[in-house]
Design a protein around this nucleic acid. Structure first.
Lengths: 217, 217
DNA sequence: GCAAATTAATGATTTATTCAAG
DNA sequence: CTTGAATAAATCATTAATTTGC
């Protein structure tokens, strides 16, 4: 049993090759790896044409001077059906409860279970849960920061923001600079789109399964 | 049938529990932290019965008399202990080829296909591919930045870098048949344990889903 | 020659930012 | 304006190559 999974598929975009040349790639100072006897030096069987996306992608985030960018060219094309998750009140409630309970970065199992539970209240997927925690955490943090900053200097004039009702209990001790190793891991999985479910009509998945977003950014 | 998927569960160290150990959740070695705090209303049903694989003993690999240990024949038991992916030369080759071909952020389908192909050369999973691109891209970027900064001037006597021999051959393979979307999205999926379906039956890998806890750092 | 100690690479996660839907 | 979604940057952790002392 088990093995329930949620998935979501979407499309991606490829960036065009920036012109960094990196001619000879192999300048690894440290030794080159050659573990396996390269019996298969021929990767030719791999047909990359299917992976390469000729059509230039918009560049992301103009980082760097060499970036000619100009990515904001939205040939807008909203995808029907698949839009973003819109949490119900109950879902939010549970999530906040968990957050308050100290949960910050649930692992895969947790996410799955949470999703399963929240599914009772409305459509939801694992990634939504994941992102919710990420965003909530980040935003609580910045809210706190902002507030502490604002209050630090410029005490007067107003105090619309309630300082902190937030229990900082958990995060305060997260930063032990000397913490030994404790790292987490998460389960990953990519799933085939299962295009065969219906012969060929899948190109256009409606549903959140394939939220095509137009290029942007 | 459709719906092929790969998954992976990584492992980690649980290390000390951050403070809230909450009640009697479990003493299981890898207890997920799961704060089912007191107020468990709906979420209480989370049972973490989990499936955590008890036998996490890093068993000297070996289970499979033959297969396994795809790369690296040396007695070095690298491997399986459930550690990180260690790409073979062929895999790297293909990945670099793709990178040079312009691929930067493959989407889920692409990742899956790449993974499938690379699986021929050794154990690999989707997330490895994903991370490889992320890291490679980021590191090329920083390498470039550093270099441009470092040797912006220093015109003379040097030509170690081949300016541009770059094949922008990307255009040659104008494949279009792709989805109209150009934005990024990725498939997500969390899956319950069930690890053994991965590539081969290297059944007992040490890697298992590992619970982690909310913040740890 | 080898194995511990060092170091360079790089795989894997987390955090910070950004973009845009509603 | 809020916040879901997605990526890039920063960081952490582990492995492989190199160095070093015997």
């Amino acid at each position: 049993m088990g093995n329930m999974k949620m998935h979501q598929l979407a499309c991606g975009f490829w960036e065009q090759e920036p012109l960094l040349s990196l001619g000879c790639k192999r300048l690894r100072p440290l030794a080159p790896k050659l573990h396996s006897n390269s019996t298969y030096t021929t990767v030719s069987s791999f047909d990359l044409k299917s992976f390469i996306r000729p059509d230039s992608g918009p560049r992301k985030l103009g980082n760097g001077p060499s970036d000619e960018n100009n990515r904001h060219s939205p040939p807008v094309e909203t995808h029907p059906g698949g839009t973003r998750w819109n949490p119900t009140q109950e879902q939010i409630g549970v999530l906040e409860m968990l957050y308050r309970g100290g949960m910050r970065t649930p692992n895969a199992q947790q996410i799955e279970q949470i999703t399963e539970q929240l599914g009772k209240y409305g459509k939801i997927e694992g990634k939504n849960v994941f992102y919710w925690f990420q965003n909530h955490k980040a935003r609580e943090r910045q809210k706190q920061k902002r507030s502490s900053l604002g209050l630090t200097h410029c005490p007067r004039s107003s105090a619309p923001i309630t300082p902190i009702t937030l229990d900082t209990r958990v995060e305060t001790m997260e930063r032990e600079e000397d913490s030994p190793c404790k790292r987490k891991c998460r389960s990953w999985s990519f799933e085939e789109e299962d295009s065969r479910s219906s012969s060929k009509e899948d190109e256009n998945r409606t549903l959140e399964l394939f939220p095509l977003h137009p290029e942007s950014r």
